Simulated scan of single mutants.
Amino acid sequence: MSAFSRLWHRAPLWRMSLYTIFPFLLLAVIFPPAYLIRLLPALKPITASIHNHLGMVDEPPATDNAAADGGGGNGGGGDGAVTMLPITDRLTNSIPFAGRVLPLPAGVWHPVMSVVNGPHGEVLENILVRVEGHVVTGLIGAESNIQPVPESAITNIDSTCHDDRNFMSRVISAHPPAMECWFTAAVYPSSINRTAVIANRLKEEGFILPPVFLKTGWSYSQPAGDHNVNVETVTMFLNPVNTDATKALRSPESWTKENLAQQPAASDFVKRTDTWIAAWAPVLHDGFNGDMLATNEAQRARLSRDPAAPLPGQGSPLD
Protein backbone atom coordinates (compact mmCIF):
# COMPACT_ATOMS: atom_id res chain seq x y z
CA MET A 1 0.00 0.00 0.00
CA SER A 2 1.39 3.40 -1.00
CA ALA A 3 1.80 6.33 1.38
CA PHE A 4 -1.06 8.14 -0.37
CA SER A 5 -3.38 5.15 0.08
CA ARG A 6 -2.52 4.84 3.78
CA LEU A 7 -3.12 8.57 4.27
CA TRP A 8 -6.40 8.34 2.36
CA HIS A 9 -7.72 5.64 4.72
CA ARG A 10 -6.30 7.02 7.99
CA ALA A 11 -6.99 10.79 7.63
CA PRO A 12 -10.72 11.41 7.07
CA LEU A 13 -10.41 15.21 7.60
CA TRP A 14 -7.69 15.43 4.96
CA ARG A 15 -9.84 13.30 2.66
CA MET A 16 -12.77 15.65 3.20
CA SER A 17 -10.59 18.68 2.40
CA LEU A 18 -9.75 17.12 -0.97
CA TYR A 19 -13.46 16.63 -1.66
CA THR A 20 -14.30 20.24 -0.80
CA ILE A 21 -11.41 21.97 -2.57
CA PHE A 22 -13.10 21.72 -5.97
CA PRO A 23 -16.46 23.30 -5.04
CA PHE A 24 -14.64 26.05 -3.15
CA LEU A 25 -12.43 26.76 -6.17
CA LEU A 26 -15.57 26.92 -8.31
CA LEU A 27 -17.20 29.38 -5.90
CA ALA A 28 -14.03 31.51 -5.93
CA VAL A 29 -14.27 31.76 -9.71
CA ILE A 30 -17.99 32.59 -9.69
CA PHE A 31 -17.81 35.02 -6.75
CA PRO A 32 -14.18 36.18 -6.61
CA PRO A 33 -13.18 38.61 -3.84
CA ALA A 34 -11.77 41.98 -4.88
CA TYR A 35 -8.19 41.13 -3.89
CA LEU A 36 -8.27 38.00 -6.10
CA ILE A 37 -9.40 40.03 -9.12
CA ARG A 38 -6.57 42.49 -8.49
CA LEU A 39 -4.08 39.62 -8.36
CA LEU A 40 -5.58 37.83 -11.38
CA PRO A 41 -7.17 40.45 -13.74
CA ALA A 42 -7.85 37.71 -16.32
CA LEU A 43 -10.38 36.23 -13.88
CA LYS A 44 -12.75 39.21 -14.31
CA PRO A 45 -14.03 38.40 -17.85
CA ILE A 46 -14.31 34.71 -16.95
CA THR A 47 -16.50 35.56 -13.96
CA ALA A 48 -18.60 37.95 -16.06
CA SER A 49 -19.08 35.23 -18.67
CA ILE A 50 -20.23 32.74 -16.01
CA HIS A 51 -22.65 35.31 -14.55
CA ASN A 52 -24.07 35.96 -18.01
CA HIS A 53 -24.61 32.26 -18.76
CA LEU A 54 -26.23 31.74 -15.37
CA GLY A 55 -28.60 34.64 -15.96
CA MET A 56 -27.14 36.64 -13.08
CA VAL A 57 -26.77 39.83 -15.17
CA ASP A 58 -29.98 41.67 -15.97
CA GLU A 59 -29.89 43.78 -19.10
CA PRO A 60 -30.75 47.42 -18.42
CA PRO A 61 -32.69 49.43 -20.96
CA ALA A 62 -30.49 50.41 -23.90
CA THR A 63 -30.05 54.12 -23.46
CA ASP A 64 -27.71 56.75 -24.80
CA ASN A 65 -25.00 58.40 -22.79
CA ALA A 66 -26.42 61.05 -20.47
CA ALA A 67 -23.11 62.87 -20.47
CA ALA A 68 -24.18 64.45 -23.75
CA ASP A 69 -26.78 66.30 -21.72
CA GLY A 70 -24.34 67.23 -19.00
CA GLY A 71 -24.96 64.25 -16.77
CA GLY A 72 -22.89 61.22 -16.00
CA GLY A 73 -22.77 58.02 -18.00
CA ASN A 74 -25.17 55.52 -19.48
CA GLY A 75 -28.29 56.15 -17.46
CA GLY A 76 -30.03 58.21 -20.12
CA GLY A 77 -32.42 60.94 -19.16
CA GLY A 78 -34.65 58.83 -16.93
CA ASP A 79 -35.24 59.91 -13.36
CA GLY A 80 -34.48 56.53 -11.81
CA ALA A 81 -34.78 56.17 -8.04
CA VAL A 82 -33.58 59.51 -6.66
CA THR A 83 -32.37 59.73 -3.06
CA MET A 84 -31.52 63.09 -1.49
CA LEU A 85 -28.38 62.81 0.62
CA PRO A 86 -27.28 64.76 3.74
CA ILE A 87 -25.59 67.73 2.11
CA THR A 88 -23.74 68.54 5.33
CA ASP A 89 -21.56 65.42 4.95
CA ARG A 90 -17.92 66.26 4.17
CA LEU A 91 -16.13 64.19 1.55
CA THR A 92 -12.45 64.52 0.67
CA ASN A 93 -9.73 62.61 -1.19
CA SER A 94 -11.89 59.72 -2.49
CA ILE A 95 -15.11 57.83 -1.85
CA PRO A 96 -16.34 54.27 -2.52
CA PHE A 97 -18.46 54.27 -5.66
CA ALA A 98 -20.23 51.38 -7.43
CA GLY A 99 -17.81 48.86 -5.94
CA ARG A 100 -14.85 50.95 -7.06
CA VAL A 101 -13.11 54.13 -5.90
CA LEU A 102 -13.96 57.66 -7.06
CA PRO A 103 -11.03 60.08 -6.49
CA LEU A 104 -12.21 63.61 -5.68
CA PRO A 105 -10.61 66.87 -6.80
CA ALA A 106 -9.20 69.16 -4.12
CA GLY A 107 -11.45 70.69 -1.49
CA VAL A 108 -14.42 69.51 0.52
CA TRP A 109 -17.25 67.95 -1.46
CA HIS A 110 -20.82 67.47 -0.26
CA PRO A 111 -23.29 64.85 -1.51
CA VAL A 112 -26.40 66.24 -3.18
CA MET A 113 -28.23 63.15 -4.35
CA SER A 114 -27.86 59.58 -5.56
CA VAL A 115 -29.74 58.06 -8.50
CA VAL A 116 -30.20 54.34 -9.21
CA ASN A 117 -31.17 53.34 -12.75
CA GLY A 118 -31.92 50.03 -14.47
CA PRO A 119 -34.59 47.42 -13.69
CA HIS A 120 -32.51 46.01 -10.84
CA GLY A 121 -30.34 49.00 -9.97
CA GLU A 122 -27.45 48.19 -12.31
CA VAL A 123 -26.41 51.84 -12.80
CA LEU A 124 -25.50 54.20 -9.97
CA GLU A 125 -25.12 57.98 -10.25
CA ASN A 126 -23.84 60.36 -7.59
CA ILE A 127 -24.05 64.17 -7.62
CA LEU A 128 -21.57 66.11 -5.44
CA VAL A 129 -21.04 69.84 -4.89
CA ARG A 130 -18.14 71.99 -3.69
CA VAL A 131 -18.69 75.53 -2.42
CA GLU A 132 -16.58 78.49 -1.34
CA GLY A 133 -18.48 80.99 0.75
CA HIS A 134 -21.92 80.52 -0.76
CA VAL A 135 -20.73 80.18 -4.35
CA VAL A 136 -20.56 76.79 -6.10
CA THR A 137 -17.00 76.14 -7.28
CA GLY A 138 -17.65 72.67 -8.63
CA LEU A 139 -20.21 69.97 -9.37
CA ILE A 140 -19.51 66.30 -10.04
CA GLY A 141 -21.82 63.87 -11.81
CA ALA A 142 -20.35 60.37 -11.63
CA GLU A 143 -22.09 57.36 -13.15
CA SER A 144 -21.03 53.72 -13.20
CA ASN A 145 -22.50 50.25 -13.46
CA ILE A 146 -22.62 47.86 -10.53
CA GLN A 147 -23.00 44.84 -12.85
CA PRO A 148 -21.67 44.44 -16.41
CA VAL A 149 -24.00 45.90 -19.05
CA PRO A 150 -24.34 45.05 -22.76
CA GLU A 151 -22.11 46.87 -25.22
CA SER A 152 -25.25 48.06 -26.99
CA ALA A 153 -26.18 50.16 -23.94
CA ILE A 154 -23.11 52.41 -24.27
CA THR A 155 -22.80 52.95 -28.01
CA ASN A 156 -22.58 56.74 -27.56
CA ILE A 157 -20.44 56.87 -24.43
CA ASP A 158 -17.60 58.66 -26.25
CA SER A 159 -19.82 61.14 -28.12
CA THR A 160 -18.84 64.05 -25.87
CA CYS A 161 -15.18 63.47 -26.71
CA HIS A 162 -15.93 64.07 -30.42
CA ASP A 163 -18.00 67.25 -30.07
CA ASP A 164 -16.72 70.10 -32.28
CA ARG A 165 -17.60 72.58 -29.53
CA ASN A 166 -14.99 71.11 -27.17
CA PHE A 167 -11.98 73.21 -26.29
CA MET A 168 -9.90 70.07 -26.24
CA SER A 169 -10.40 66.31 -26.15
CA ARG A 170 -8.17 63.29 -26.08
CA VAL A 171 -9.01 59.69 -26.97
CA ILE A 172 -6.61 57.60 -24.91
CA SER A 173 -7.89 54.21 -26.03
CA ALA A 174 -10.27 53.50 -28.91
CA HIS A 175 -10.41 49.75 -29.45
CA PRO A 176 -14.12 48.86 -28.99
CA PRO A 177 -15.50 47.81 -26.65
CA ALA A 178 -12.58 49.26 -24.65
CA MET A 179 -12.55 53.06 -24.69
CA GLU A 180 -11.08 55.91 -22.63
CA CYS A 181 -11.23 59.62 -23.36
CA TRP A 182 -11.53 63.08 -21.78
CA PHE A 183 -12.68 66.52 -22.94
CA THR A 184 -13.24 70.14 -21.87
CA ALA A 185 -16.04 72.49 -22.95
CA ALA A 186 -18.12 75.42 -21.70
CA VAL A 187 -21.75 74.90 -20.66
CA TYR A 188 -24.51 76.83 -18.94
CA PRO A 189 -26.05 75.55 -15.69
CA SER A 190 -29.38 75.07 -17.48
CA SER A 191 -27.83 72.39 -19.72
CA ILE A 192 -26.80 70.14 -16.82
CA ASN A 193 -28.84 66.97 -16.47
CA ARG A 194 -31.46 67.25 -13.69
CA THR A 195 -30.79 70.98 -13.46
CA ALA A 196 -34.08 71.78 -11.73
CA VAL A 197 -33.62 69.20 -8.98
CA ILE A 198 -29.99 70.17 -8.34
CA ALA A 199 -30.65 73.92 -8.50
CA ASN A 200 -33.59 73.70 -6.08
CA ARG A 201 -31.55 71.66 -3.61
CA LEU A 202 -28.66 74.13 -3.74
CA LYS A 203 -31.02 77.10 -3.49
CA GLU A 204 -32.44 75.66 -0.26
CA GLU A 205 -28.91 75.83 1.17
CA GLY A 206 -28.39 79.38 -0.11
CA PHE A 207 -25.80 78.36 -2.72
CA ILE A 208 -25.29 80.38 -5.89
CA LEU A 209 -24.64 78.79 -9.28
CA PRO A 210 -22.26 80.67 -11.61
CA PRO A 211 -23.57 81.92 -14.98
CA VAL A 212 -21.24 79.52 -16.81
CA PHE A 213 -19.37 76.30 -16.03
CA LEU A 214 -16.26 74.87 -17.58
CA LYS A 215 -17.20 71.25 -18.14
CA THR A 216 -14.60 68.52 -18.18
CA GLY A 217 -15.33 64.83 -18.34
CA TRP A 218 -13.69 61.42 -18.42
CA SER A 219 -15.26 58.28 -19.86
CA TYR A 220 -14.02 54.70 -19.66
CA SER A 221 -15.35 51.33 -20.74
CA GLN A 222 -13.74 47.94 -20.16
CA PRO A 223 -14.73 44.58 -21.68
CA ALA A 224 -16.40 42.19 -19.25
CA GLY A 225 -16.90 39.14 -21.51
CA ASP A 226 -19.86 37.97 -23.63
CA HIS A 227 -20.36 41.39 -25.24
CA ASN A 228 -20.74 43.03 -21.84
CA VAL A 229 -18.74 45.94 -20.46
CA ASN A 230 -17.99 47.78 -17.25
CA VAL A 231 -18.22 51.51 -17.68
CA GLU A 232 -17.80 54.78 -15.81
CA THR A 233 -18.17 58.46 -16.67
CA VAL A 234 -17.14 61.31 -14.40
CA THR A 235 -18.32 64.78 -15.46
CA MET A 236 -16.99 67.77 -13.53
CA PHE A 237 -18.32 71.32 -13.75
CA LEU A 238 -15.83 73.95 -12.58
CA ASN A 239 -16.67 77.58 -11.81
CA PRO A 240 -14.41 79.65 -14.09
CA VAL A 241 -15.54 83.12 -12.89
CA ASN A 242 -14.60 82.88 -9.23
CA THR A 243 -11.05 84.24 -9.57
CA ASP A 244 -9.77 87.81 -9.70
CA ALA A 245 -8.63 87.37 -13.30
CA THR A 246 -11.95 86.03 -14.62
CA LYS A 247 -14.64 87.48 -12.32
CA ALA A 248 -15.59 90.11 -14.94
CA LEU A 249 -16.15 87.45 -17.62
CA ARG A 250 -19.60 86.48 -16.44
CA SER A 251 -21.19 86.50 -19.90
CA PRO A 252 -21.35 83.04 -21.46
CA GLU A 253 -20.25 84.68 -24.71
CA SER A 254 -16.80 85.21 -23.19
CA TRP A 255 -16.39 81.45 -22.91
CA THR A 256 -17.37 80.29 -26.38
CA LYS A 257 -14.75 78.50 -28.43
CA GLU A 258 -14.92 81.24 -31.07
CA ASN A 259 -14.35 84.13 -28.62
CA LEU A 260 -11.78 82.50 -26.36
CA ALA A 261 -8.81 83.97 -28.25
CA GLN A 262 -10.06 87.49 -27.42
CA GLN A 263 -10.22 86.71 -23.68
CA PRO A 264 -6.69 85.97 -22.36
CA ALA A 265 -7.88 85.28 -18.79
CA ALA A 266 -10.53 82.84 -19.98
CA SER A 267 -8.09 81.20 -22.38
CA ASP A 268 -5.58 80.74 -19.55
CA PHE A 269 -8.23 79.14 -17.31
CA VAL A 270 -9.19 76.72 -20.09
CA LYS A 271 -5.55 75.80 -20.78
CA ARG A 272 -4.97 75.12 -17.09
CA THR A 273 -8.09 72.93 -17.02
CA ASP A 274 -6.88 71.01 -20.08
CA THR A 275 -3.56 70.39 -18.33
CA TRP A 276 -5.30 69.40 -15.11
CA ILE A 277 -7.72 66.83 -16.57
CA ALA A 278 -4.91 65.28 -18.64
CA ALA A 279 -3.06 64.58 -15.37
CA TRP A 280 -6.21 63.70 -13.36
CA ALA A 281 -7.59 61.18 -15.87
CA PRO A 282 -5.00 58.49 -14.95
CA VAL A 283 -5.99 58.89 -11.28
CA LEU A 284 -9.66 58.31 -12.21
CA HIS A 285 -8.53 55.27 -14.20
CA ASP A 286 -6.69 53.90 -11.16
CA GLY A 287 -9.78 54.50 -9.01
CA PHE A 288 -11.95 52.55 -11.44
CA ASN A 289 -9.59 49.60 -11.07
CA GLY A 290 -9.46 50.03 -7.29
CA ASP A 291 -5.71 50.63 -7.50
CA MET A 292 -5.14 53.82 -5.54
CA LEU A 293 -1.60 52.68 -4.74
CA ALA A 294 -0.48 53.64 -8.26
CA THR A 295 0.07 57.19 -6.97
CA ASN A 296 1.09 58.17 -3.46
CA GLU A 297 -1.03 60.46 -1.30
CA ALA A 298 1.16 63.53 -1.82
CA GLN A 299 1.12 63.06 -5.58
CA ARG A 300 -2.67 62.66 -5.68
CA ALA A 301 -3.08 65.80 -3.54
CA ARG A 302 -0.99 67.76 -6.04
CA LEU A 303 -2.81 66.35 -9.08
CA SER A 304 -6.23 66.92 -7.50
CA ARG A 305 -5.92 70.74 -7.45
CA ASP A 306 -8.14 71.88 -10.32
CA PRO A 307 -8.13 75.54 -11.47
CA ALA A 308 -11.38 76.30 -9.58
CA ALA A 309 -10.36 74.66 -6.29
CA PRO A 310 -10.55 76.92 -3.20
CA LEU A 311 -7.21 77.87 -1.75
CA PRO A 312 -6.13 75.89 1.34
CA GLY A 313 -7.77 77.30 4.45
CA GLN A 314 -10.81 78.74 2.65
CA GLY A 315 -13.80 77.05 4.19
CA SER A 316 -17.29 76.08 3.18
CA PRO A 317 -20.46 77.43 4.85
CA LEU A 318 -21.25 73.80 5.65
CA ASP A 319 -18.03 73.33 7.62
Rank of each mutant, 00 (worst) to 15 (best):
residue 261 A to W: 10
residue 261 A to Y: 12
residue 261 A to T: 14
residue 261 A to D: 14
residue 263 Q to M: 08
residue 263 Q to L: 02
residue 263 Q to N: 15
residue 263 Q to Y: 10
residue 264 P to G: 13
residue 264 P to M: 09
residue 264 P to I: 05
residue 264 P to H: 14
residue 265 A to I: 00
residue 265 A to M: 06
residue 265 A to F: 06
residue 266 A to M: 09
residue 266 A to H: 12
residue 266 A to L: 08
residue 267 S to I: 01
residue 268 D to G: 01
residue 268 D to A: 11
residue 268 D to N: 10
residue 269 F to A: 04
residue 269 F to H: 07
residue 269 F to P: 03
residue 270 V to P: 09
residue 270 V to Q: 12
residue 271 K to E: 11
residue 272 R to K: 15
residue 272 R to M: 03
residue 272 R to Q: 12
residue 272 R to P: 01
residue 272 R to E: 09
residue 273 T to I: 01
residue 273 T to P: 07
residue 273 T to H: 09
residue 273 T to L: 04
residue 273 T to Q: 10
residue 274 D to S: 07
residue 274 D to K: 09
residue 275 T to R: 15
residue 275 T to I: 05
residue 275 T to C: 07
residue 276 W to Q: 01
residue 276 W to N: 01
residue 277 I to T: 01
residue 278 A to S: 11
residue 278 A to D: 08
residue 279 A to H: 14
residue 279 A to E: 12
residue 279 A to W: 07
residue 279 A to T: 06
residue 280 W to D: 00
residue 280 W to S: 00
residue 281 A to C: 02
residue 281 A to F: 00
residue 282 P to S: 08
residue 282 P to L: 04
residue 282 P to T: 03
residue 283 V to L: 08
residue 284 L to K: 06
residue 284 L to C: 10
residue 284 L to G: 06
residue 285 H to V: 00
residue 285 H to I: 00
residue 286 D to H: 08
residue 286 D to V: 00
residue 286 D to R: 04
residue 287 G to Y: 03
residue 287 G to K: 05
residue 287 G to A: 03
residue 287 G to M: 01
residue 288 F to S: 02
residue 288 F to R: 03
residue 288 F to W: 06
residue 289 N to T: 04
residue 289 N to I: 00
residue 289 N to D: 14
residue 289 N to H: 15
residue 291 D to A: 14
residue 291 D to C: 07
residue 292 M to C: 07
residue 292 M to W: 08
residue 292 M to N: 12
residue 292 M to F: 10
residue 292 M to A: 07
residue 292 M to Y: 10
residue 293 L to G: 12
residue 293 L to A: 15
residue 294 A to N: 09
residue 294 A to H: 09
residue 294 A to P: 00
residue 295 T to N: 12
residue 295 T to Q: 13
residue 295 T to K: 13
residue 295 T to Y: 11
residue 295 T to C: 06
residue 296 N to S: 11
residue 296 N to E: 05
residue 296 N to K: 04
residue 296 N to R: 04
residue 297 E to K: 15
residue 297 E to L: 11
residue 297 E to G: 10
residue 298 A to K: 13
residue 298 A to W: 08
residue 298 A to M: 12
residue 299 Q to H: 09
residue 299 Q to C: 02
residue 299 Q to A: 09
residue 299 Q to S: 11
residue 300 R to K: 12
residue 300 R to C: 02
residue 300 R to T: 03
residue 301 A to H: 14
residue 301 A to K: 15
residue 301 A to V: 04
residue 301 A to G: 12
residue 302 R to A: 12
residue 302 R to S: 09
residue 302 R to H: 10
residue 302 R to E: 10
residue 302 R to N: 07
residue 302 R to C: 00
residue 302 R to M: 07
residue 303 L to V: 07
residue 303 L to T: 05
residue 303 L to N: 13
residue 304 S to G: 15
residue 304 S to F: 05
residue 304 S to Q: 13
residue 305 R to V: 14
residue 305 R to A: 14
residue 305 R to Q: 15
residue 305 R to T: 13
residue 305 R to D: 11
residue 305 R to P: 05
residue 305 R to I: 11
residue 305 R to L: 10
residue 306 D to R: 11
residue 306 D to T: 06
residue 306 D to W: 09
residue 306 D to F: 07
residue 306 D to H: 15
residue 307 P to G: 11
residue 307 P to S: 13
residue 307 P to E: 13
residue 308 A to F: 13
residue 308 A to D: 11
residue 308 A to V: 06
